[in-house]
Design a protein around this nucleic acid. Structure first.
Lengths: 136, 136
DNA sequence: ATAACTGTAATAAAAAATATTACAATTTAA
DNA sequence: TTAAATTGTAATATTTTTTATTACAGTTAT
C-alpha cells in the first residue's frame, strides 16, 4: 500500500487523542486529513486490527483510542502500516542467469531489515503522547 | 521518483564493481536488473551526478565506477536517490482550519528527518565493497 | 421510524512508475 | 570514411498503484 499510510495513521491517532476518549467520525477525520472517508475507514480497520483504536457503529458512532497514548509508540505504528520495505520493494525479478541478479534480492532484504530496524528503534523512542504534545 | 531507485542503483553499482574498472553497457545492466535500458541510463545519470560512476559514449562505451568501492558508502547512495521521505511524502495538504491538520506536516517532517538519519547512519556502516563481498 | 454512522465491495479516476520508440551525437574500428 | 555500437535525451504509451467515488447493507441513538 501507499507511502502515505504512516502519516495518515498518525494523523488519525493524533486526532483521536485530542478527542480525549470521545468518539470521532471518519467524516471528520477525513476532513482534517483531507482525504476520502473510505480511505480513513480502511486505515482505521488496520489500526483496530492492531489494537490501537476501536470503533462504534451506528448513529453517533466513530472511533476512539483503545489504549493510552503513552502506550502507543510510533515504532509500533510504523510496523502496523508498513507493507513493503522502506528502501524499495524487492518484487522486481532480476535475471537469474546473472550471478549478481540471482542473489541480489536476498542481500537487499537483509540490508533492508537492518536499516529498517534502526528506523524503528528511532521511532520507538517516541509515543503518541509525546507526539501529541507538540500540538499544544 | 519510485521506491525502487535504491535497489536499482545498488544493483548497478554492484555490477560495475564486479566489472573491475571495465566498461559496462546500459543494455547489459538492464538485462541483469530486468528493467528497461532507458531507466538504467537515467539512474546512471544520477549516479554520475553524484560522482559514483562515469560513462563513456560511443561504440564500446558504457559506465564504470568513478571511485573505489570502499569509498562508496551505502548511506551516501541512499541520499543520492531519495526524493521523498521514507515514511511518506508530506505533499498532501491537510485542512488548515483544523488545529492538528494545520501543524501536522511540520511535526511529521521533523519526525521523518530524525528517523531517516537513523536509517542513513545504519546504511553508512557499509560500503559498496562490503556489500559486493556477499556475492562471492 | 428516521437519521447518522460504520463496514465493505465495486468501480472510476488520477497519479506515478515503467516501458517503448526514436533519434541525434559520439566513438571505435573495419 | 563509413558502419556499428553506444550514450543522452525527449516524447509518448502502457501498466501499476493510489486515491476517490458511489452504493448499500447493517448498526445504533433518538
Amino acid at each position: 500500500m501507499s507511502s502515505s499510510r504512516f502519516p495518515i495513521s498518525l494523523h488519525i491517532l493524533t486526532l483521536l487523542n485530542e478527542a480525549k476518549g470521545g468518539v470521532v467520525s471518519s467524516e471528520y477525520l477525513a476532513g482534517s486529513i483531507n482525504i476520502n472517508p473510505v480511505l480513513v475507514r480502511k486505515e482505521i480497520m488496520n489500526l483496530r486490527k492492531h489494537g490501537f483504536v476501536d470503533s462504534k457503529e451506528g448513529k453517533g458512532g466513530g472511533s476512539f483510542l483503545a489504549k493510552n497514548a503513552s502506550d502507543i509508540n510510533l515504532g509500533d505504528v510504523y510496523k502496523a502500516v508498513r507493507s513493503n520495505h522502506v528502501l524499495g520493494q524487492s518484487k522486481n525479478e532480476p535475471n537469474p542467469k546473472c550471478p549478481v541478479g540471482r542473489q541480489i534480492n536476498q542481500h537487499l532484504d537483509s540490508l533492508y531489515s537492518d536499516a529498517e530496524n534502526a528506523l524503528i528503534d528511532n521511532l520507538s523512542k517516541q509515543t503518541l503522547a509525546d507526539f501529541a504534545l507538540k500540538f499544544e
